[in-house]
Nucleic acid binder design. Structure first.
Lengths: 129, 129
DNA sequence: ATACATGCAAACACTTTGCAGCACA
DNA sequence: TGTGCTGCAAAGTGTTTGCATGTAT
């Protein structure tokens, strides 16, 4: 199970690292395909999974929509605009003390957490009032 | 746009209120269909949407899987077992002070948040070691 | 040489929608 | 009576998979 350094894998990684706007798999696919590089969407999905498992990019699961990916692998939180559905970074300290406040879950092994804020981004806020 | 009190809507609401294990739309459908009541899955989805918009049940969005629903409408958090994929309640104070710690999002309107913990439930923890 | 990776299409899981008929208010 | 609701099937998303072929090591 040794990973290979293929053109497609390199392109997926470089594209995520270049796009700083939380692209979805489809957006990454279209970005690569626009450069006249032959790549299939299945390959994009496969490489996104491998790269995020290796910790080279971050997978941001989004309920009710396409998951997106982040060049920034440092744990952080996100905000989804309920109007334009774009995803933004939220600058907030990583909540390491959250687990101490949990009661009655002693038998669970809690490994990680995600916080997803919802609201309106500046543009949609101005637009929708 | 006046809501009607149909048999199907009542059944969906009662079923969610009776099942205390965060059922998915499909599980609710199967529960109702098992009682020999004719209902279509589309109707279950439509009523789940209406009931959660009315605040009679709570919609729990789950990335990478089927969303589930909760009879408990008081905001609270959830934990998803990465092995059996079941969803559990997390007993933790609602984090009202979270928004104060956010920096640089002054132009955003933050309306709500979800915290999803991930890990292993007691059974899967014992099973997988 | 031989795993691993790719492209393609089909399958998959979850959810929404168009439509004709039905039923609550 | 009329609008809202239903069942059904089909379509819509987002993602994964089977398979034959291709390629990095």
């Amino acid at each position: 199970m040794k990973n290979r350094n293929t053109l497609q894998r390199r392109l997926v990684l470089e594209t995520v690292q270049r796009m700083h706007n939380h692209p979805t798999a489809d957006e990454i696919y279209r970005e690569i395909a626009a450069e006249n590089t032959l790549i299939s969407k299945a390959t994009v999905y496969r490489n996104l999974k491998i790269l995020s498992q290796q910790g080279e990019i971050q997978h941001i699961p989004i309920p009710d929509g396409a998951d997106c990916f982040d060049f920034n692998t440092i744990p952080h939180y996100h905000l989804e605009c309920r109007h334009c559905l774009r995803v933004f970074d939220v600058s907030m300290p990583y909540q390491t003390k959250l687990y101490d406040q949990i009661e009655g879950c002693e038998d669970f092994l809690i490994e990680s957490h995600d916080i997803l804020f919802r609201g309106l981004c500046p543009e949609c806020r101005a637009e929708t009032g």
